[in-house]
Amino acid sequence: MRTSLLRSGVNRGPGLLTYGLLLLLAALSFFPFYWMFVVASNDTSVINDIPPRLVPGDRFMDNIRTVFGNVPFGRALINSAIVATVAAVAQTFFSALAGYSFAKLRFKGRNVLFVIIIATMMVPLQLGVVPQFLLISRLGWVNDLRALIVPATVSAFGVFWMRQAVQAAVPDELIQASKVDGAGTFRTFRSIVLPAVRPQAAVLALFAFMGLWNDFFWPLVVLNRQDSFTVQVALRQVQEQAYVTDYGVQMAGTVVGTVPLFIVFLIFGKQIVGGIMEGAIKG
């Protein structure tokens, strides 16, 4: 009796209903992407037909050309790549360094200082935007990528994440041995800790890269010259210029702005999924 109950309740594979619902939700997740490409590759008049055309057309390159003609989109792609890469690398490095310090070094106030960092995660920093903007003006960084990079070089989540990573991946004995060999704390970090936490550091760098690539509010505030635009701000301008008249062009821009992250996601999707789920358990 007991085993049969267990078998029916726990060990049976998922049924058709489960797969059906999952496929439906997967389709709902994916359809807007598909639709983006359909609209981007058609003439707007075709999309406006009734019934509308539901398959991709052949106008994609024309629409792309219009996007690049209206807004310096190539420059925006480069700007976004610079901001996201530089800030992600810096953020990962500083987070690993702080995480190592909290996980393996002993110093006064360690716990309190760590709790303060965790607490800052709950602060809606966007609401300080007016003084943040005044500060950036004072520094002369309006329309300058440094305005986006410098504030993003640290993150509370990053410190939290890397502290867990160091705790899990680096045994205390290794740190001790390095100390006995006469290595200073920084050399221990460079030659022992960093190599050991490389996978978790890579996941953090990916999160940071994606977050910065998709950031919109802050770039919109501090960038108002076209040559300093990031992809998101450029997309907003494409939308404002092509509004109503041309959805094909708007969507073509959207495709260009989304594809780089999509490639990253296709390559590292498994690690990203794993990272989110790991972060959930620890958090």
């Binding site: 997740s29 919109f216 992809v231 997309l235 996601f265 999707g269």
Partner: peptide, 19 residues
């Protein structure tokens, strides 16, 4: 399945808004 349901999250809000 996990990757597909997560994919909207990596899309920028701008793209979501326009679509």
């Amino acid at each position: 399945f996990r990757m597909i349901v997560l994919s909207p999250q990596i899309t920028s809000v701008l793209a979501v808004g326009i679509i």
